[in-house]
Each structure stands twice: as structure tokens, then as C-alpha cells.
Amino acid sequence: MQEPLFGSVDEVVERLAGAGYLASTAVATTVFLADRLGKPLLVEGPAGVGKTELARALASATGSELVRLQCYEGIDESRALYEWNHAKQLLRITAARDEQWQETRDHVFSEEFLLPRPLLTAIRNPDPTVLLIDETDKSDVEMEGLLLEVLGDFQVTVPELGTITAARRPFVLLTSNATRELSEALKRRCLFLHLDFPTPELERDIVTLQVPGLDATLADSLVCVVGALRELDLRKAPSIAESIDWARTLLALGADRLDEQVVQSSLGVILKYQADHRRAAAELRLDRLLDPASP
């Protein structure tokens, strides 16, 4: 058993905060458990709640190297695990024409011609590593089978080289937007964390941390408006990143308080659909500005 990264849940909160990530109890507890139990952590949630950011903060808080595997439709072993460098192998064979076949064969299938992809890189790394497998739901079902093998035993078999076992277990973080149900087998091997939009208090802290110049009362009302917008059943709810963008915009505009005029003119920063815009304006009573006759 290797040395755990964290001593207690509070330490997780503290060190993540040091890396610029404010973690809720849920996040801190699951991260702590994932580290202690040596299990991968599956983070699921809507876009823009800081799933990828968590991995980045973890890496910088623990001084680990971040290895990222971005999943997409059609990703396969040669993109995720390893590949032989064919061009270089051919070059080597043509360069040594008069060599014996036996010798050449042994040579071209050696470390030198292996191109490690993220999974193999993470497993072979002797230093602490955070392996981020991003948007797992975008990959095909076959890819999940491969992940099962790698995440189950933390070892990879390359037929020509033999089995490579992890020198040091990486901290594995999988993210998913839940566009597809991941297989039960994969979920069973992971700890599950559903990451939702943060509580108003936490979001205010995040915004003030990221945009230091922002006035405290302005931050309060900003978080309040964003929270109200998220409850509205919009096509695209504003994410944390968008609240931060909005805070920056307000700062640039020099607004000192949030009134109808300011919200109306800068709403485009957080809402990206026309229908959402109309809806928000109606619900937040911004339209009264345009029509002063109404009560």
C-alpha cells in the first residue's frame, strides 16, 4: 500500500483551496475516500460545474503530474493505451539491411519504438499522477471494456514486452456529462460523485476568489440572480464559469450594483439562447423597463 495523499477530509478542503478550488463536503469526502480506498472516482454532472477543474486542482494540490485522456466517439486502444511507432520501425529495418532477422525483430519491438498514450503514461509514471479521463460518456462501449481492465488491476499487457504493472497507483478521475448511461461494471469499480451547481454561499466564495476586485454586495446579488436563472428550466443553465465571466464583465463595466438596466444589457454573457433570454426577462421582470406603463 502506498502512502495516502491526504490525512483527513479537512486537509483535502484546505489543500484544494490552496490550489484555488473551493470544495464542498461532498467533494472533499469523496476525494478523500477515493485516495484512501484506492478506487477511481467517477464525477457526473451538468456542463460547467467544475469537473475537469477538480482534477487540475488535485494535481496542483498534491504536486502530481496531470495526465489527461480526452474521450471522443471512436477513440480506441491505439489512442488511449499505446501504439508502435511504425514509421520509425520501418526506418530501423531499412537502416540495418544486413542484420539477422532475429536480431531486428528483438530490436524493433523494444521500448524505443513504443509510443505511450495517456493510460500507459499514467501507469508507468513512478511519480504521483492524477489521471483524468474526460467525458467518458462520449467514448464507445468497447472503450469501457478497456478501461475496466486498466482501472481494475492498474496493469497493461503489451504482447511483445510483457505486463507492465503500475509503479505507483495514479489517482484516477473519470468525468461524464451523463449523455449516455455508463455500464454497470464500470460504475461498480468507481466511487460515484454527482456534482451539481454549488450552494449560493459556495458560489459567492468561488466568484470572489476568481474575481478579487468584485464588491461583496454585488457578488451576493450576482449569485442570487444566477441561482434564480438556474431554477427557470432554461435550455442551457448558466455554469460557474459563466458566473465568473459575468462577474468580470460587471467589473469591466464598472457597475456597483445590479439593477434591471445592467442585467438587461449584460445578460448575453450568461444566457446563450434567445428563448432563454426572453424567458429570463419575463421572470425577472426586466421587461417592465421597456414598457413603463405596466404596474
Binding site: 477530509v9 463536503t25 461532498a26 469526502t29 475516500l33 454497470e184
Partner: peptide, 14 residues
Amino acid sequence: QLREALASTVLRRS
């Protein structure tokens, strides 16, 4: 913490 720990180990869907 207990609540979150149990949630992360027994739940699989949001």
C-alpha cells in the same frame, strides 16, 4: 461526511 461517503459508495445514478 458519513452521508457523502455512503452516497458515493452505494449510488450509481444522480
